[in-house]
Amino acid sequence: MDSYAVFLRGINVGGINIKMADLKTALKACPFSGVKTLLASGNVVLQSELDAKHVKTEFEKCLRKSFGYDAWVVVLTAARVAQLVDACPYPADDKSTHSYITLASDPAMLDELFEAGEALGGVDQVRLGPEASAWLAPAGGTLDSPFSKLSAKARYKASTTTRNLRTLIKVRDAAADLQS
């Protein structure tokens, strides 16, 4: 049985509100075990006999059926989340900047987003792998940063989601707890 981290896109913002207790209840009908939600921003760790592709399919189907919205998630193995956290060259805690990792279920869309960020200029970003890139935003100005506005475009909605590095550290640790 493998451990996974599932990152929901766009919940508890923009009118799609899901209580984590309700999400956990809905997921009981899925082929998952050890389900644990983290924070209210849509982070879940779980175990399953399914591979990552099928965890994604089942999870999205559950969200659509239970909560009635066009749901998208990014699914990574627990081991891959740990690798991405370790590979991030930016600090988890810094008073002047915030470190983010954008995760993607479609590497081609992340390629496009990364290249668009490069074209913007002034974006401190690094590619961590085919499914992730890390970037910095000024403290207190994340939502107003040009790259944040770019990554929020509808074009990227179905395939990418962004998390603060501190959140990914919490997800990594929770997924590791599932394995022990």
Rank of each mutant, 00 (worst) to 15 (best):
M1Y: 05
D2L: 02
D2V: 08
Y4T: 15
V6W: 01
V6H: 00
G10C: 09
G10T: 00
I11C: 03
G14T: 03
G15V: 06
I18P: 12
K19E: 05
M20C: 08
M20F: 06
D22V: 05
D22P: 05
L23R: 03
K24E: 14
K28A: 13
A29P: 00
C30N: 08
C30D: 04
P31W: 02
F32S: 06
G34S: 07
G34L: 03
K36L: 01
K36T: 12
K36G: 05
A40G: 15
G42N: 00
G42E: 03
N43M: 06
V44A: 11
V44D: 09
Q47T: 14
Q47C: 12
L50E: 14
K53I: 14
K53V: 15
H54R: 12
V55R: 01
V55L: 01
F59Y: 03
F59L: 04
F59D: 03
E60C: 03
K61D: 01
L63F: 02
R64K: 15
F67G: 07
F67P: 05
V73P: 02
V74T: 15
L76A: 14
T77L: 06
V81E: 04
V81C: 12
A82L: 10
Q83R: 14
Q83N: 13
V85Q: 03
V85I: 11
V85N: 02
V85Y: 14
D86I: 05
D86F: 01
D86R: 13
A87R: 15
D93P: 01
D94C: 13
S96Q: 12
S96V: 13
H98Q: 11
H98P: 01
A104G: 11
S105E: 11
S105P: 09
S105C: 08
D106V: 09
P107W: 13
P107L: 12
M109D: 13
L110N: 08
L110C: 08
D111E: 09
L113R: 07
E115L: 06
A116E: 10
G117D: 05
E118M: 06
L120A: 10
L120N: 06
L120D: 04
G121P: 07
G122P: 07
G122T: 06
D124S: 10
P130I: 10
E131D: 13
A132Y: 13
S133C: 14
S133H: 11
S133I: 08
S133Q: 12
L136I: 09
L136C: 10
L136A: 09
A139M: 14
G141Y: 07
G141C: 09
L143Q: 11
D144N: 15
P146V: 09
F147R: 04
K149T: 11
K149V: 14
A152F: 08
A152C: 10
A154D: 09
A154R: 02
K157S: 13
T160F: 02
T160A: 04
T162Q: 05
T162N: 11
R163Q: 05
L165M: 02
L165N: 01
R166H: 04
T167Q: 01
T167V: 05
I169E: 04
K170I: 03
V171D: 03
V171I: 13
D173S: 01
D173K: 04
A176R: 14
L178K: 05
L178M: 06
S180T: 04
